[in-house]
Computed example of a mutant assay.
Amino acid sequence: MDLPNPTRRRLLASGGSGLAIGLAGCLGGRDDTAAQDEDDPEGETTGAGNERGGDHEHGSHNHDHDTDHEIGQPVSEITVEMITNDEGKHFIPHVVHVEPGGTVEWVLKRGAHDTTAYHPDVYNGQQRIPDEAEPWASDHLSDEGATFERTFDIEGIYDYVRAPHERDGMVGTVVVGWPDPEGQPGLETPADDRPDAAVEGLERYNEQVRAVLEAGPDGQSSTEAGHDHDHGHSDGSDHEH
Rank of each mutant, 00 (worst) to 15 (best):
E99Q: 12
H140A: 14
G102S: 08
Q126K: 11
G88S: 04
G111H: 03
H94A: 13
V96F: 01
V122Y: 07
W136D: 10
E132R: 13
V96K: 06
V96W: 01
D86R: 08
I83Y: 00
H90S: 01
E144M: 13
P130Y: 05
G145F: 07
W136G: 09
W136F: 15
W106P: 04
E144S: 11
S142M: 08
D139Q: 11
T103R: 12
D114L: 13
A146S: 15
T115C: 14
T115P: 09
A133M: 07
E105C: 12
N124M: 12
L141M: 15
R128V: 04
H113T: 04
T147C: 06
T116L: 07
T147L: 03
E99G: 01
T151K: 09
N85Y: 01
P120C: 11
A146V: 03
F148P: 00
E149K: 13
M82C: 08
F152T: 04
G145E: 05
I92D: 06
G88M: 04
L141H: 12
K89H: 06
E132I: 05
V104Q: 03
H119T: 07
P135F: 09
T147N: 01
N124T: 14
G102R: 04
H119A: 14
K109T: 06
G125C: 12
V96E: 07
S142Y: 13
Y118T: 09
E99F: 00
A133V: 02
G125P: 04
F148K: 02
Y123A: 14
T103I: 11
P93D: 08
D143W: 09
I129Y: 04
V95R: 08
F148T: 06
R128H: 03
P93Y: 03
V98G: 05
P135L: 11
A117R: 05
E105K: 15
P100E: 10
E99K: 10
A117N: 05
E134M: 13
P100I: 08
V107Y: 01
I129A: 11
S138T: 15
T103D: 02
H119N: 13
V107M: 14
G111A: 09
H97Y: 01
W106G: 11
G102D: 07
H140T: 10
P120K: 12
L108S: 07
V107Q: 15
T147Q: 10
H97M: 01
Q126Y: 06
T116R: 08
P135D: 03
I154P: 00
L141D: 04
N124D: 14
Y123G: 03
A112Q: 12
N85P: 00
P93H: 06
L141F: 11
F152D: 03
E155H: 03
M82S: 01
V122E: 07
R150G: 03
R110F: 08
V104H: 01
V107A: 14
G111W: 02
P100M: 10
A112F: 02
W106I: 11
G102V: 02
E105T: 15
D114A: 15
F148E: 11
T116Y: 02
D143P: 02
G88K: 02
D131E: 13
F148I: 01
S142I: 10
M82R: 05
G102E: 02
H119E: 07
Y123T: 08
